[in-house]
Nucleic acid binder design. Structure first.
Lengths: 112, 112
DNA sequence: ACAAAATGGGTATTATCTTAATCATAGAAT
DNA sequence: ATTCTATGATTAAGATAATACCCATTTTGT
């Protein structure tokens, strides 16, 4: 079985996917590329590109990001952003500082 | 047929997906959540969460973004970012300004 | 107005992603 | 040190994402 049935997403999630799709479409048009050109360059079908631009959450993230990169949409890996997201420190370093496992004892008595 | 064979991705694409995965893992650990807790809250399997945190480009973007939201990773829809990405103007407005179709005549003679 | 091209959307097919179940290993807490 | 838990990873199977092919509609360029 793949997905339980028909899952739902947080509003923020939907919004983010749709916004990314619109940014892609915007980038494509600014570069005067047709759906066929862009999908061809990305190595995907035109149909899939349409789904991506419409913000279909079921698309593979790799395909979405690939298309975004081709049309120049800034993602997380850009220098400009990486500084923000790493908080001035490399992610791997931060991860190394944390305990390797999140160990939660049984009787935490976490009555917050 | 699903995907041609085994596609490749731009370096930037891989980096972006992997970075997002690391940000998710970082967020999860900072919140002291186990894989099982987070995957449970997101409505996905633990296995899939592992793939997401490792930056598997074949994961659905909706699932990745959903998990990111749960652990507080900032995406495109956040106010802080949206201003950047819309350049102070709503995407829909910008799209409306552009021609609805990118029409490229046959003999462009685009010798740049 | 006309022709050509871009886009929207339907369907069937196939590769594969997601899942559940399971086991092994490594780490944390006592 | 020991025990309990989190994580890593494999497998089989079913659901479905991506594709190719198709046609209708819309829009652009002339």
């Amino acid at each position: 079985m793949a997905s339980p049935v028909n899952r739902t997403y947080l509003r923020q999630t939907q919004d983010a996917v749709e916004l990314l799709g619109k940014l892609i479409r915007l980038g494509r048009k600014e570069r005067k590329m047709t759906e066929e050109e862009l999908s061809g360059r990305a190595g995907i079908s035109r149909r899939t590109l349409q789904k991506i631009e419409r913000g279909d959450p079921k698309c593979k993230i790799g395909l979405v990001f690939e298309v975004a990169n081709i049309v120049g949409v800034k993602l997380f890996s850009d220098e400009e952003n990486s500084t923000r997201y790493t908080f001035g420190r490399h992610i791997d370093d931060k991860l190394a500082l944390l305990p390797k496992r999140v160990h939660r004892p049984v009787n935490v008595n976490d009555d917050f």
